[in-house]
Amino acid sequence: MALSILLVFCFLANISLGSVYIPLNEVFNSLLGNSTQQETWQHIIQNYRLPKAMTAILVGSGLGISGLLMQTLFRNPLAGPFVLGISSGASLGVALVILGSSIFGGVFALFLISKWSIVIAASLGSFLVLLAVLMVSLKVRDTMAILIIGLMFASITSAIVSVLSYFGSAQQLQQYIFWGFGSLGNLSWDELGIFFIIYCLGLIISLASVKSLNTMLLGENYAKSLGLNIKRSRFAIIMATSLLAGTITAFAGPIAFIGLAIPHLTRQVFNTSNHKILLPAVFLFGAIVMLICDSIAQVPNSDYTLPINAITSLVGAPVVIWLLVRKRKMVF
């Protein structure tokens, strides 16, 4: 409950802070559809800050939830949304578009490097990797094997990206690296709409998996003896993660850390492993942390925007370390 209030506060503060400071009451006015003192504020909020704050909520909560799903599925506290190679798939797609244009020339040169082409490339890349992992997950009995196969896919794609970067020009490399920083802004309402629909699909599947996730806490053999269809639950969980993490990477870049850290943060704070509590708590924590990180990244009252990917780790890692040291006992 307290968390929900905190979320609303962070949401408003995030909109209010930025290169131009907009007072909180003016933010309220604008959100309620009233006119604001200055017309530019209205414009900034509706076309820039509001979509960005909403993106932050979707990204933070989505990554947190997919991280939670992966950690439970793989019984591994180091798992995160990207263990299945989703972000590496997306990176490969983007690298091919940005860096590959010099190698393959012709076709790609015509294909302007617009934002949409990057989104499409990232989706396509993560979709292909996901497809491969899903096929494997239906064949393989051992869940751990899927984890290793995911890591192998990541190695292959990062190797290809290395080769591409070797041939890329300095300008292209910079463009690729900037994509890697991650970005919550730049999303139009149309894009946000598509993002939201896919996100909701992933969220619904996650919610429907709560019972199987709890059963899996006993271990796979016990889960089976309780009548759980392991393959089907595993498929659903991987599907949910792919939808969430895949679209997030496509629209906001490979944002690290949140997916790994938020589930730990939540488990430490709530001291439970019950997914009925964890799932909503991770949703709220993820969204709050992302909003705070984004507010910091904007560097209030300045023209700088720091890479969000760096901020999430800079802010989040000390918090998790502090929690683990203070409690002296990892909850998993």
Binding site: R75, L217, R267
Partner: peptide, 9 residues
Amino acid sequence: LTEQLMSKN
């Protein structure tokens, strides 16, 4: 079973 629980929490 003899197997360890996944989560002892």
